[in-house]
Design a protein around this nucleic acid. Structure first.
Lengths: 153, 153
DNA sequence: TTCCCTGCAAAGTTTTTGCACTCAT
DNA sequence: ATGAGTGCAAAAACTTTGCAGGGAA
């Protein structure tokens, strides 16, 4: 039942990172971290995370979840996303992986991933033309997912 | 004092559009529309718009601004943007123009534009690979603008 | 022991909604 | 005249903050 076993190394590495920054390894933080490692493919809101974590740690407060998500995003462990549904969504940020982009279904709200960067040349162009030093980008596609597409007519 | 003169055609065209949809051409809607035509290059929040419009129409309510922005975005007259500062921002959406993207300075928050689409081939790829029917995209670059870049060290 | 972190509740922000009244058509 | 549209205030929805107490290092 515990996919976390396979992620033990990753988990340890992150704990070390927290310690190096002199952040305390509280059970709340551990539980939240584990929740994301066990649901790498999902885009969890603070509320989602709260509900999920409350199961293992009933006394946790929503504010703690917010503070922890902030912290983990700050450290680059999570990626904070905005899919336009009025709440921030977080996903585990694999270090080794290239930036991926999101496909958002305007019908059902499903979010899937799209790997393929291809934006490096654009960034170089921007450096030259606009004088910006680009450090990050965010690309989203909106449309109809396979299911909704066929349900349309 | 009225840049709107040059935009009379555009303004009339939009009024016609509203009428065709049987939306009433209230003075509130007219005033908001004019504000955007006079500030085509800006990315106004609801509050920004409210302040701006209140000058010409002191009795307007903030809720009306929200409702009008919604309506105009729905009709494609405005484009709703999210630059991650916790409020939605709207800009006039030129019909003739290609999609443009945004450069956001992470230091001072300045938002500038970047014309160049180049995403059509990506969209075609997505249609094939992910089965999505893509209808829109949103690309943002984050970095340091010229000013902030030089102020860095 | 220290003070970082937490839970709780209150407050803050942006946006939406209910309702009676108004006015564009 | 009629119902879409409006202003106001209250509510909703998400997130942040203040504070006293608790626990990781």
């Amino acid at each position: 039942m515990f996919k976390l076993e396979e992620r033990k190394d990753e988990y340890q590495k992150i704990c070390d990172l927290l310690r190096h920054h002199s952040y305390k390894l509280t059970p709340q933080r551990q539980t939240i971290l584990k929740a994301f490692l066990e649901h790498e493919d999902q885009h969890l809101s603070a509320e989602d995370t709260f509900m999920m974590v409350k199961h293992n740690y009933p006394d946790i407060g929503l504010a703690t979840v917010y503070r922890t998500l902030d912290l983990l995003a700050e450290l680059g462990i999570l990626q904070k996303n905005d899919f336009g549904d009025g709440r921030s969504r977080y996903e585990f940020n694999r270090q080794d992986e290239h930036h991926h982009h999101h496909l958002i279904c305007v019908q059902c709200g499903e979010v899937s991933e799209f790997d393929e960067d291809l934006l490096e040349s654009l960034e170089a162009q921007i450096e030259k033309r606009n004088g910006y030093h680009v450090i990050d980008h965010d690309l989203k596609f909106y449309g109809y997912c396979e299911k909704c597409k066929s349900a349309l007519d």
